[in-house]
C-alpha cells in the first residue's frame, strides 16, 4: 500500500516526501546539497536550528532540524548564522569559591538585567527553563543553575533571542564548569592519583 505523500516547504522550496523523515533528510531527499547547518544528526551538536510552522497553526517554534519530523503542510526554515560570544573568562583566574559570585557578575554583567521576557526559554529546543537558570546564576546558585542546563547543546538560540544580550547558554556552562572546578573532589580518583605518583604501579607486558 502506498502511503500518502507528505508535502512540506523548506527554505522556500516545495518538497514532496514519500515517508516521514527529519527536516535534514527531507532536504537531501529533494536533491538539495546541505552541509552548513548539519552536524551530529542525533540532536546533541546544535548545528541544525530551524524555524517551524505546522499546518493550520500560526505559532512558530524553534527546533533542531535533525529532530524535527516532517508533517504534511509544515513550513521549515534553517537558521544558519554564527552565535558569537562576547564574554571571556578563565577558570584558573578563580582562586577560591568565595569569589565566584563576584567574578560571575564581572564576566556576565548583563545577566542581572534580565527582563523576564522568557524569549530564551521559549526558543530552547531542549525545553530548558533558561530564564530560571539565568536567575539562579544571578543569585549565585551555580550548582542548581548548572543542573538546569543538563541537556544544553549550545545551539545558541537563547542567545539570539535575548534583548539584553545576555548569553544564557554560556552562563549555563559557566555555572556547570565552576561547580566541577571547585566541588568535584572524588576520593577514589584522588587516592589512585596519589598511588600513581608514588610509583606504585608498573605495567608488565
Amino acid at each position: 500500500m502506498k502511503e500518502k505523500e507528505i508535502n512540506v516547504n523548506i527554505n522556500g522550496k516545495d518538497i514532496a516526501l514519500p515517508t516521514p523523515m527529519s527536516a535534514i533528510q527531507a532536504v537531501w531527499h529533494a536533491g538539495y546539497p546541505m552541509v552548513h547547518g548539519v552536524g551530529c544528526l542525533e540532536g546533541v551538536c546544535g548545528a541544525c536550528k530551524v524555524l517551524v510552522r505546522r499546518a493550520g497553526g500560526t505559532e512558530i517554534t524553534t527546533e533542531l532540524g535533525c529532530q524535527t519530523m516532517t508533517e504534511d503542510g509544515m513550513q521549515i526554515i534553517f537558521l544558519v548564522f554564527p552565535t558569537p560570544n562576547h564574554h571571556s573568562y578563565e577558570l584558573s583566574d578563580l582562586k577560591n569559591s568565595w569569589e565566584t559570585q563576584g567574578h560571575f557578575h564581572h564576566v556576565f554583567p548583563e545577566a542581572a538585567h534580565c527582563r523576564h521576557c522568557s524569549g530564551c526559554t521559549k526558543s530552547c529546543p531542549k525545553d530548558i527553563d533558561v530564564e530560571k537558570g539565568v536567575d539562579l546564576a544571578v543569585e549565585g546558585k551555580f550548582r542548581e543553575a548548572g543542573e538546569l542546563f543538563l541537556e544544553c547543546v549550545m545551539c545558541g538560540l537563547c542567545l539570539t533571542s535575548c534583548p539584553e544580550r545576555i548569553t544564557p547558554n554560556h552562563v549555563g556552562i559557566f555555572c556547570r564548569r565552576v561547580s566541577a572546578y571547585f566541588h568535584i573532589r572524588p576520593s577514589n580518583l584522588i587516592n589512585r592519583l596519589e598511588e600513581i605518583r608514588k610509583g606504585r604501579f608498573k605495567i608488565e607486558y
Binding site: R176, R177, I184, P186, N188, I203
Partner: peptide
C-alpha cells in the same frame, strides 16, 4: 596502551579542572 592506562586517572582530573562534571555517589566518589 601503557601510556594510555597510566595517564587515565590524570586525564579525569584534568577534565574536572577544566570544568567537566561526572556522576558521583552520595560520598562524592566517581
Amino acid at each position: 596502551v601503557e601510556k594510555l592506562v597510566m595517564e587515565a586517572p590524570d586525564v579525569i582530573r584534568w577534565l574536572i579542572q577544566h570544568g567537566m562534571q561526572f556522576d558521583e555517589n552520595q560520598f562524592g566518589d566517581l
